[in-house]
């Protein structure tokens, strides 16, 4: 086994383990931080796969995103510290079966499908960034611009939904 395979496996395992921790703790803060660690391990996995730009981007984006998520957790939860050990799950058996079946199905596809020849040559980090930049500004420009406009629209729509006035119930008939 190569060093690359070891590190991909190690960070993959860390990412999955922290993903499981997200749903095993009663504390919402711990959940948010576990998800942050899971996504960071994923970024480290990207770095192990020599995708430097995407790995760093993943870590930076997710650190910000999960910090915001942690703030929302504290705002919305009745018991963000999880001291009351309140169970917030339902249909556990169905969910476990669905999760396990999708995992086994995806692994079966990964193992038994013939993926064809493996690439032996690989561009270095600088060349990857050049290729990605040219791809974004050339063939995939429309997709990239659409993604940008969609984010902007989502931000405006999200703000509009969140600030709409709520009718107070006065009790008058």
């Amino acid at each position: 086994m190569t060093a690359q395979a070891f590190f991909i496996g190690f960070f993959g395992l860390a990412s999955v383990w922290f993903g499981i921790v997200v749903f095993r703790t009663y504390s919402m803060m711990r959940s948010a931080i576990a998800l942050l660690f899971s996504q960071t391990a994923l970024g480290a996995m990207f770095l192990s796969m020599q995708a430097e730009f995407l790995g760093v981007l993943q870590i930076m984006m997710m650190a910000t995103e999960m910090s915001i998520m942690a703030i929302f957790m504290v705002m919305f939860m009745m018991d963000p510290g999880g001291l009351g050990e309140m169970d917030m799950t339902h249909q556990k058996r169905l969910s476990l079966i669905a999760g396990f079946v999708s995992f086994v199905g995806a692994v079966a596809v990964a193992v038994f499908v013939d993926w064809g020849p493996v690439a032996t040559t690989f561009p270095d980090a600088a060349q990857q960034t050049v290729d990605l930049g040219l791809e974004l500004l050339d063939r995939s420009m429309l997709i990239f611009e659409t993604a940008g406009i969609t984010i902007l629209t989502a931000m405006i729509a999200a703000t509009a939904v969140a600030i709409q006035p709520v009718k107070k119930e006065t009790g008058k008939k």
């Binding site: 993959g12 990412s15 993903g19 749903f23 999708s102 995992f103 990964a110």
Partner: peptide, 17 residues
């Protein structure tokens, strides 16, 4: 791919439960 499958499975469990 196995790590991706495991993340997907955990995610499906979380989203449903």
């Amino acid at each position: 791919l196995t790590a991706g499958a495991a993340l997907f499975g955990v995610g499906v469990y979380g989203a449903l439960s």
